[in-house]
């Protein structure tokens, strides 16, 4: 058993046991250990990648939301503006329509008044004529009720009639 000469027995046992250890550990230890470590690393990497993706998506979603909000706001403003315009238009239209109507009513009223006035005047005239005749009749009757008056009148009238 010298220091630098290998013993055949130890060499033999070493080759056998190291070979067996290598084989057994490779099959029952290193393979499962390395595989599961790799699996875990892969799953961690995947999870990280997914988290990054989710974050990106969230950001995108937020940006989308903001866009939508902005769009909605714009739309709202537009609608309000349109409504205001519509209101103004309607008021304006109603006003002009009312004025027109009023004018029309006024014109017709005036026409009616005119015609009523004319007819009233005509009636008044005929009434006045009737009245005048009646009055004249009454006066005449009154005037000519006594003999002397009749004579007087004839005289007056004869007087007026110049025998020329």
């Amino acid at each position: 058993m010298s220091l630098i000469t290998p013993d055949i027995g130890l060499l033999f046992w070493m080759v056998v046991s190291f070979g067996i250890v290598l084989f057994i550990l490779k099959k029952f230890a290193w393979k499962p250990i390395l595989d599961s470590v790799k699996e875990r690393e892969d799953s961690i990497e995947e999870a990280l990648a997914q988290a990054g993706k989710a974050k990106e998506e969230l950001e995108k979603l937020q940006a989308n939301n903001e866009d939508l909000l902005k769009q909605a706001r714009e739309e709202r403003d537009l609608i309000i503006k349109e409504a205001r315009e519509a209101k103004d238009n309607m008021i304006h239209e109603a006003k002009s329509k009312a004025k027109e109507e009023a004018d029309k009513i006024l014109v017709s009223a005036r026409e009616t008044i005119e015609s009523e006035k004319l007819s009233a005047v005509a009636e008044l005239k005929s009434q006045v004529a009737v009245l005048s005749i009646e009055i004249a009749e009454k006066i005449l009757r009154d005037e000519l009720s006594a003999e002397d008056k009749q004579k007087k009148l004839v005289n007056n009238l004869l007087e007026d009639v110049n025998l020329n």
Binding site: M1, D7, I8, G9, L10, F12, W13, M14, S17, F18, I20, V21, I24, L25, F28, A29, W30, P32, I33, S36, V37
Partner: peptide, 30 residues
């Protein structure tokens, strides 16, 4: 031809069993 289980062979076998026991049990934990 001397294939005796000498002191070194005994130590070798011990450490070999220790090695297998440690790493196979670790593999089981995995």
């Amino acid at each position: 031809w001397d294939f005796s289980i000498t002191k070194n062979v005994a130590a070798l076998l011990t450490s070999v069993f220790l090695l297998m026991w440690i790493f196979i049990s670790i593999a089981k934990t995995y």
